[in-house]
Design a protein around this nucleic acid. Structure first.
Lengths: 157, 157
DNA sequence: ATTATAATGAAAATGGTTGTCATTAACAAT
DNA sequence: ATTGTTAATGACAACCATTTTCATTATAAT
């Protein structure tokens, strides 16, 4: 049963409508999962989380929905070096949950960090402005990741 | 015929031997291609460039060699959003050719930029130090990419 | 030269992601 | 509320970069 009270109230509905996308149960469910999850989910992770409540939402739809969400800038898509792509709700660089990643190249563990974010973002803004002008490039997003060995993997070697 | 004069003279031989890797014709050829190429090659690109001279080096070997090179830190592996991975000789953050990437999310064009690198690298070094200490993480590399629309794609829309 | 074992090539397998197409659902117009 | 247009969906097949397998070959320590 659709929650009618939410119709038109959810922050992302306008964004959807404005671009000619329809608001569907699948999309609501997937966005719901993404906003509850606080960690980088793969398409399959999302599929599995959505399945118990909505068993008729297929993996294909999850992929398609994620494509749309990424396209709209509502979701970020990451590659952490294992095969599968990971998805994460975008709060925007100014958003409260904005963070960068620290990735262990050995065990693929991912640490989100928010330290130093302010300084980084300030510099990035300057850089973005400079690059935009020089290359006539409309920058919409950035990716910063540090790679290395986490404490556990470092001790093993 | 192996070039005997180079045996032991090339900068990377020691690195290889030290880790128990053998020095083979295939590896020399692939590194040669990588050091000539000044742009992000895919595994297949490399295979094709190596093939005329050494037709018996297979794509599988290219993949395996690249894995080794990435593991040794001699080569960086990138994901620009099209399906295939790209490889590039690592000169290290202090290296002369160090650059970051500006990626068009529409046409997948990649622009290397070296502007602002100095300021960025300085901040990154500080950040790395802080992160290393806080998370007891041994940082070996970083990735910075800006995403957006290049001039051509921006005008079209 | 001999030997242990790392590296290789060819072919098959893998597996995340995309394409196809008939069916269903959203929603604007009535 | 009903209808008509068209976007969205699900099931399944196809795709294709990358890995695995395994028998063979080449490297380099002895």
């Amino acid at each position: 049963m659709r929650n009618k009270d939410c119709r038109g109230h959810l922050w992302w509905h306008g964004r959807f409508r404005g671009c000619g996308y329809r608001i569907t149960l699948a999309r609501e469910a997937i966005l719901e999962v993404l906003s509850r999850a606080n960690q980088h989910l793969s398409a399959e992770d999302i599929y599995i989380k959505v399945h118990p409540m909505y068993p008729n939402i297929g993996l294909t739809t999850v992929y398609r929905t994620l494509d749309v969400l990424v396209d709209l800038g509502l979701v970020f898509k990451f590659d952490f070096g294992d095969k599968r792509a990971r998805y994460e709700l975008a709060e925007g660089p100014k958003g409260a949950h904005h963070h960068h990643h620290l990735i262990c190249t050995n065990c693929k563990r991912v640490i989100d960090y928010t330290d130093f974010i302010d300084e980084e973002v300030e510099l990035l803004n300057q850089t973005e402005k400079g690059l935009s002008k020089k290359y006539n490039f409309m920058i919409t997003n950035h990716l910063i990741q540090f790679y290395g060995l986490c404490d556990k993997c470092n001790n093993k070697k």
